[in-house]
Amino acid sequence: MLRMEIKPGMGPEFERVWKEVGESVTSHPANIGQWLSRGAEQGEDEVYYIVSDWLDEAQFRAFESSDRHLQHRTKLHPYRSGGSMTTMHVVARLAGAAA
């Protein structure tokens, strides 16, 4: 999961560009999908969360160091003012009634 802090007032443009360049990630054979969410807490108007799901960490790490990823990051970098990333492994899933 990537937490991105976006420069003030640039959220709508960031969202547009993220959708435009997303195929460079989702078309990778090991990528399962991506989700973009905006923070809902007080003071998180310019905070976005990107969840990117991969078959395994090794293939994600290979993508992360590729030219393809560098080009993707270069297009989103002008909007970013800070952020952090964490990786995790799903250990269990409980489907809700609506599923």
Results as ranks from 00 to 15, higher is better:
residue 29 P to A: 07
residue 52 S to A: 06
residue 3 R to A: 08
residue 16 R to C: 02
residue 50 I to M: 12
residue 9 G to R: 01
residue 94 L to W: 15
residue 77 H to K: 09
residue 20 E to H: 01
residue 91 V to T: 15
residue 34 Q to E: 11
residue 15 E to S: 01
residue 26 T to I: 11
residue 90 V to F: 05
residue 70 L to Q: 11
residue 82 G to Y: 13
residue 67 D to K: 10
residue 59 Q to R: 14
residue 7 K to N: 04
residue 11 G to K: 00
residue 84 S to E: 13
residue 1 M to G: 05
residue 63 F to E: 05
residue 88 M to W: 12
residue 91 V to L: 15
residue 36 L to K: 05
residue 40 A to H: 03
residue 34 Q to A: 12
residue 40 A to R: 12
residue 57 E to N: 08
residue 85 M to E: 09
residue 3 R to H: 07
residue 32 I to T: 00
residue 95 A to T: 15
residue 25 V to R: 09
residue 5 E to R: 03
residue 66 S to I: 12
residue 9 G to E: 05
residue 48 Y to C: 02
residue 48 Y to R: 03
residue 72 H to P: 07
residue 15 E to V: 03
residue 80 R to Q: 09
residue 38 R to M: 01
residue 76 L to R: 00
residue 26 T to L: 03
residue 55 L to M: 01
residue 6 I to N: 05
residue 84 S to H: 10
residue 88 M to G: 13
residue 2 L to P: 11
residue 56 D to Q: 09
residue 55 L to C: 07
residue 40 A to S: 04
residue 58 A to N: 11
residue 29 P to F: 12
residue 86 T to R: 11
residue 56 D to K: 00
residue 43 G to R: 11
residue 24 S to A: 07
residue 22 G to W: 05
residue 6 I to P: 00
residue 63 F to T: 04
residue 12 P to R: 02
residue 96 G to F: 13
residue 36 L to D: 05
residue 89 H to M: 10
residue 28 H to E: 13
residue 61 R to L: 14
residue 46 E to Q: 09
residue 87 T to R: 07
residue 1 M to P: 09
residue 51 V to D: 10
residue 70 L to C: 05
residue 80 R to K: 13
residue 64 E to S: 12
residue 78 P to G: 03
residue 15 E to R: 06
residue 49 Y to W: 11
residue 14 F to R: 02
residue 5 E to K: 03
residue 63 F to Y: 14
residue 38 R to T: 04
residue 59 Q to N: 09
residue 17 V to H: 01
residue 91 V to C: 12
residue 38 R to P: 00
residue 11 G to P: 00
residue 43 G to L: 12
residue 69 H to I: 15
residue 49 Y to Q: 06
residue 28 H to F: 06
residue 70 L to V: 14
residue 33 G to S: 06
residue 22 G to C: 02
residue 87 T to Y: 07
residue 53 D to N: 03
residue 34 Q to Y: 08
residue 26 T to G: 06
residue 2 L to D: 06
residue 33 G to T: 08
residue 22 G to A: 00
residue 48 Y to H: 10
residue 99 A to H: 09
residue 33 G to Q: 11
residue 31 N to D: 09
residue 18 W to K: 02
residue 56 D to Y: 05
residue 85 M to I: 13
residue 55 L to R: 04
residue 71 Q to R: 14
residue 87 T to H: 02
residue 62 A to E: 13
residue 27 S to Q: 04
residue 16 R to D: 00
residue 84 S to Y: 10
residue 97 A to L: 15
residue 91 V to D: 13
residue 11 G to I: 01
residue 96 G to A: 15
residue 90 V to D: 08
residue 6 I to M: 04
residue 74 T to C: 03
residue 2 L to Q: 06
residue 95 A to D: 15
residue 97 A to Q: 15
